[in-house]
Amino acid sequence: MTASRDAILKRVNDALAPLKERAPYPEFDDDVAVMPALDRNGDLWTAFCERAKLVHGTPLSGKPAVLADWLHGQNLHHGYCDPELLPLFGEALAAAGCAVETIFDRARVDEYQFGITRAEAAIAETGSLVLTDATTSSRLAALAPWTHVAVLKRGQIFADVADALKKMPVDPNVIWCTGPSRTADVEGILIEGVHGPGVQVAFLLE
């Protein structure tokens, strides 16, 4: 195995040795690819909502009852909830007739209509939610149900991609979710909800 490593590195060295000079690392600003249209001084949640809607995301905000009523209105009455969020949402969910489990049982993957987990952050520029391993209580619960709700707090919203990259948490599984899961493989027709959520909710908890 080390033989292959050394063989590859030797080939690479030999390939590059004849170059008289190597291309330098170009100088550029971190925000070189940030869209100029973005208003970085405005309200980031407002900007986030605007962009999230463009990618068919579902931004909501308010007290826990707002989410519970929304779920009820969508006829979603059984799902998963991050145990750490249960003290905040449990009462409202029960009042809206939504039963939640706090352990995701993969054997019954089809029974969960929704999953509620925490978002680490969001990105206004792209309408993306940032999920991490540390703050997602179950990767499957945030992925398998048709509806995923990522709970967000104010002050967790990055202005743009460059900012989010700069402040990337040390975590083995950081995922930026930009709208629902989608495909256009069949005749280029957009279909949402392929393997991941068909509805991606960003819930700003006030």
């Binding site: 995701f104 993306s128 179950s138 083995p172 599984n173 950081v174 979710c177 930009t178 709208g179 989608r182």
Partner: peptide, 17 residues
């Protein structure tokens, strides 16, 4: 839709992965 940054195996408190 998804931009995934994978930095290793799952973390200790994560049940999946």
């Amino acid at each position: 839709s998804y931009t995934e940054f994978i930095g290793g195996a799952r973390s200790a408190n994560q049940p999946d992965g």
